[in-house]
Design a protein around this nucleic acid. Structure first.
Lengths: 196, 196
DNA sequence: TTGACAGACTAACGCCGTTAGTCTATAATT
DNA sequence: AATTATAGACTAACGGCGTTAGTCTGTCAA
């Protein structure tokens, strides 16, 4: 094996590094190949297409995000867990914006394997909400709500939509998260009154 | 003027139509030119670059979205206005997904003129919240929160993230909006108690 | 009638992802 | 130890992309 020591995983890792350092739009077969000291065509000995590589980086990014969230939740529960989750999600999105973009650009539809990865996105949120007295169906709805808040916030700030007013973005986010916690408790109480 | 009757606006309109019918990723100079029965290079007599054209379509999309929202709010106020706004936003995002993508892909940072357009995004939301007894600063925060909810929801559903559970998406959205209204009223009441 | 010019054209450049075909060095087999 | 198979690099090329330069032509104003 001439010029060995180059696995598929090496390429995915190199692509992730390229994306994080130079930006997602700078990822190209030739640029990536140059970093690995090979020619663009040689990449195709390891990957099927740039699209598949993109998906591969997506898995990596989702795994990183999941890891960060689970670590943030730690031994916390209820409000503390939700706050920690929201903060870690925000920190990931803002701290590694290019990697976060990769997650966004993944079309979860086409690929079956990606539906597994989609579970990785949901799991930490469900875990953070485990301490609340809610039905599974309620939690599924609320998981979508929280994800929408977190993702919507990050992507709009990233796009520069929040720059135009002199009120602090972090305070807006805090209000959003506290509003979600308010909703959580409200739904808990409603259930309690019905059962009484 | 040989082959006249082709203005910059015609090209923006044609681009918007192309995007809506064939998808944003199918927009290319050659494809667009073919629709206008000219060659790709001739486009540059009217536009500076494809990027600028993209921005032009973005203006159009934002104007459309604003129009839909203001119409939805109509004479409504408070909760009704917020619900109508949220519904119209959702309907726009889901009903014209490719046009909505154009708005998302606009980087509000670079272009000064786009900051004007950003005001068009904010205005209907502030209008819907006008009936609540809140400070301007509070409304600015809450406008960000609502936008995050609406945008986060649409973009995640568009990406296919909500397909994996057998609970209705529209119900999730309803919960999210009602949660926001809950937050609105909660902040109103807090202010009232402080002032008493 | 003539000159200016808007607005189309062709040709070409350098980028992109991707495929086909070739060569070579190592690993496995005889 | 000699041979064969193969992994994995290479060059060359294709069609598509956005974009620029330079050219030609038809209409409108002087």
């Amino acid at each position: 094996m001439p010029g060995k020591g180059l696995s598929r995983e090496d390429i995915v890792t190199a692509a992730a590094e390229l994306i994080e350092s130079d930006g997602l739009d700078r990822l190209s077969a030739r640029e990536l190949a140059a970093r690995l000291h090979i020619k663009a065509a040689s990449l195709y000995n390891h990957i099927r297409s740039m699209d598949e590589l993109h998906t591969g980086v997506g898995y990596y990014a989702i795994a990183e995000l999941k890891r960060a969230q689970l670590q943030a939740i730690g031994g916390k529960s209820r409000d503390d867990a939700v706050r920690a989750l929201a903060e870690s999600y925000y920190r990931f999105g803002r701290g590694r914006p290019e990697l976060y973009k990769v997650i966004l650009s993944l079309p979860m539809v086409k690929n079956d394997a990606l539906q597994v990865a989609a579970g990785d996105v949901v799991e930490p949120i469900m875990s953070a909400m485990s301490g609340y007295d809610l039905t599974m169906e309620q939690k599924m709805h609320l998981q979508r709500v929280l994800r929408s808040i977190m993702h919507g916030f990050i992507s709009q700030e990233e796009a520069g939509c929040f720059r135009h007013f002199p009120v602090h973005v972090s305070e807006s986010y805090r209000i959003a998260v506290e509003g979600f916690i308010l909703l959580l408790k409200n739904m808990e109480n409603e259930a309690r009154h019905e059962n009484k």
